[in-house]
């Protein structure tokens, strides 16, 4: 081994090459391409690895425990009430946890790289700044997707378990009753456990988290500290939920001339209308989410996420590292 270390004149390398020979490409790497999914993928995987090794997934454990815990002491309610509360608590918690995860995981992503100077080694490779940023945000969105899937799965499991228990209890209690009555009762139990709006609701929760992640990324490109980013995001989060009410009030007071329209558009860009992503109440109440509303909200989420990522890229391009 000692020999190996001292004998650094490696025969391992291919033969010598005359200086300045043929083109600029190195011998090993493929020629540079302006946009490379491979490079973005490398950064995405790296970001995801970083976040998982930071153990942010413990968030999800807390969520699961909260859910199971809450479904324990609801035995004295009617089953309709029980399912309503279960859905209310679960979807509400999912919304808060994914939002929290989005903000906390994104806030430190870029400032940390700059502080540790790891960004120098990355950008000294042929990696455009836009690709770096896209890779980072994609890593967070992937983390959020995994998080949402895990939480969704726990939620469905708990819901299914309660439903099965109730089905058994009902069958035992109504053992003497006629066939049709039993079927009727079971249908009622099943109907109040699952409704088809849960899935779109979860998708919207995910998109809201994506939006918040992209906005956090944008804020973090000009923030000086992580604390600043998180405080600003907390502020935006609350304003964002109140925005719709404020807007109605404003429109009542002022005429809807173009100045106030522009003003409202700017406000809507800085403080996205987060209340629009809050479909939990509708789902719990059992009112169906129309396909139109779902698509409108989904498009809004994707639109905001894209805009914020592009804004982040814009600021990041001019940034002195």
């Amino acid at each position: 081994m000692t020999n190996d270390r001292n004998d650094l004149t490696l025969q391992r390398f291919p033969g010598r090459r005359s200086p300045g020979e043929g083109g600029n490409a190195s011998t090993l790497a493929k020629p540079y391409r302006a946009f490379s999914v491979g490079r973005i993928g490398a950064i995405t995987v790296n970001t995801l690895t970083e976040l998982t090794r930071l153990k942010v997934f413990y968030f999800l454990l807390v969520f699961a425990l909260l859910l199971i815990g809450s479904s324990m002491f609801m035995a004295q309610l009617t089953f309709q009430q029980e399912f309503q509360i279960l859905k209310d608590v679960s979807l509400g918690a999912m919304s808060i946890f994914t939002s929290l995860l989005a903000i906390v995981a994104t806030a430190r992503l870029i400032p940390q790289d700059i502080e540790d100077r790891t960004i120098y080694t990355i950008l000294a490779k042929p990696v455009p700044r836009l690709e770096y940023l896209l890779g980072k945000i994609a890593g967070v969105l992937l983390l959020l997707a995994i998080g949402t899937l895990v939480m969704g799965a726990v939620f469905f499991l708990v819901l299914y378990a309660r439903e099965q228990t109730l089905v058994h209890v009902t069958m035992r209690q109504m053992a003497a009753a006629p066939r049709e009555q039993i079927d009727e009762a079971l249908r009622a139990v099943r109907a109040s456990a699952f409704n088809s709006d849960i899935l779109p609701g979860i998708v919207i929760i995910y998109l809201k988290a994506c939006l918040l992640a992209a906005l956090t990324l944008f804020v973090s490109t000009f923030a000086t500290t992580n604390i600043f980013t998180i405080v600003v995001m907390a502020f935006i989060y609350f304003i964002g939920h109140l925005q719709a009410i404020a807007r109605e009030y404003w429109l009542q007071e002022h005429s809807s001339g173009w100045i106030s329209r522009v003003f409202l558009a700017v406000v809507a860009l800085i403080f996205p209308d987060l209340q629009a992503f809050n479909l939990v109440d509708d789902i719990v109440a059992g009112t169906a989410i129309s396909l139109g509303l779902f698509f409108k909200t989904a498009v809004l989420g994707v639109f905001y996420t894209t805009i914020y990522t592009l804004l982040a890229a814009f600021v990041f391009y001019g940034k002195e590292l």
């Binding site: 600029n24 490409a25 790497a29 090794r53 120098y120 000294a124 990696v127």
Partner: peptide
């Protein structure tokens, strides 16, 4: 960006991803 295609850089006091 393509000017960096054939360059290797070692920054001062390099620091990489700890994890």
């Amino acid at each position: 960006v393509e000017s960096r295609e054939a360059v290797g850089f070692l920054p001062e006091n390099p620091y990489f991803y700890k994890y």
